[in-house]
């Protein structure tokens, strides 16, 4: 039981990170109908920027951890958002009215560009950082000497995810920008006719998605204590799987899918084998899609006449 509780905590933390990345996939798919394959690498960029800004702040002599974390968070969100905006601008917008596969191919290319860019500029080695948030609580002392641990970093990751989700839900459902985004999602032509600048709204979608991925990147850095240039690939594929599992285009679905993938992966590693954890996650995806082709929360696409 203790072992189960511990894996549950670990799975929820991992799932939160996947969920934050998955939102970026699902938002972009909702509004422009393309899979942004470079999104995983945006997450990686976010992690790198968090690491660099952390090291810069420390070398400047800053010691107050909460202040450092806040600055690192803001810096990585802003700069990564800038990456997201630029990528949309140079790689996707010129192809918007091209054939359907063109932006997707461009996205795959962009993914390679970002991966190689970080490899060349930051080096190919794994970059470790010292643990920044330490300590934690022992929730339950088991009989065989096994204790259920909840570390502070896990609390930070889950809390940050909950807060971001709340802000993001408010943004989409209650603000002008959110209304514009939903309008563009349903009928871009009509939205433009009502005076909505569709291009700008799409840009904002990429900016928000990238900012959320940056938070995920920073959480990953804090949680695992390392970044490397290739981490965006697997994390991106997992988050994409999460978005599809939850029902692509659905925001709560992305979060739910993220949690599901995180939990499946953790429990599989804990009870069966670590080597096959990815196989487990993707097998579940296949099974779910056979029985629920639109994902857990996706709405079936109604054929327009």
């Amino acid at each position: 039981m203790d072992y189960f509780a511990q894996q549950l905590i670990n799975g929820l933390v991992l799932g939160s990170i996947y969920g934050l990345i998955a939102i970026g996939y699902t938002m972009v798919y909702g509004i422009v109908g393309m899979i942004n394959f470079a999104h995983g690498d945006i997450f990686m960029i976010g992690g790198f920027i968090a690491m660099i800004s952390f090291l810069v702040l420390v070398s400047l002599g800053l010691t107050a951890i909460p202040l450092i974390l806040l600055i690192v968070l803001l810096v990585s969100m802003v700069i990564t958002a800038l990456y997201g905006w630029t990528i949309e601008r140079i790689a996707y917008r010129p192809l918007r009215h091209s054939f359907r596969l063109a932006p997707m191919l461009s996205a795959i290319g962009m993914s390679f560009v970002l991966t190689n860019f970080s490899q060349v500029s930051q080096g190919a080695r794994v970059k470790p950082v010292p643990p920044i948030i330490t300590g934690g609580y022992t929730l339950h002392e088991g009989s065989q000497g096994f204790a259920v641990q909840l570390s502070n970093i896990q609390i930070v990751v889950v809390l940050a995810t909950i807060v971001l989700l709340a802000v993001f839900t408010w943004l989409v459902s209650r603000t002008r920008l959110g209304r514009d985004m939903r309008a563009c999602e349903q009928d871009q032509t009509m939205a433009a006719l009502l005076g909505v600048d569709v291009d700008r709204t799409i840009s904002m979608t990429f900016v928000i998605g990238a900012a959320l991925a940056a938070v995920a990147g920073m959480m990953y850095l804090l949680y695992y204590g390392l970044v490397d240039f290739f981490m965006g690939f697997v994390a991106g594929i997992k988050a994409f799987t999460a978005a599809v599992l939850g029902g692509i285009g659905s925001l709560p679905g992305a979060m739910l899918g993220g949690l599901a993938i995180g939990l499946i992966e953790t429990f599989w590693s804990a009870y069966f084998s670590v080597e096959y954890k990815d196989v487990a996650a993707f097998s579940i995806l296949i099974v779910v899609l056979i029985f629920m082709p639109t994902g857990l929360l996706g709405r079936p696409e109604v054929e327009k006449v």
Partner: peptide
């Protein structure tokens, strides 16, 4: 915009 409320439809128009 079928998925948005009547009021929201009119709000988008005041973008």
């Amino acid at each position: 915009f079928p998925g948005m409320t009547a009021l929201e439809n009119l709000m988008v128009a005041q973008h």
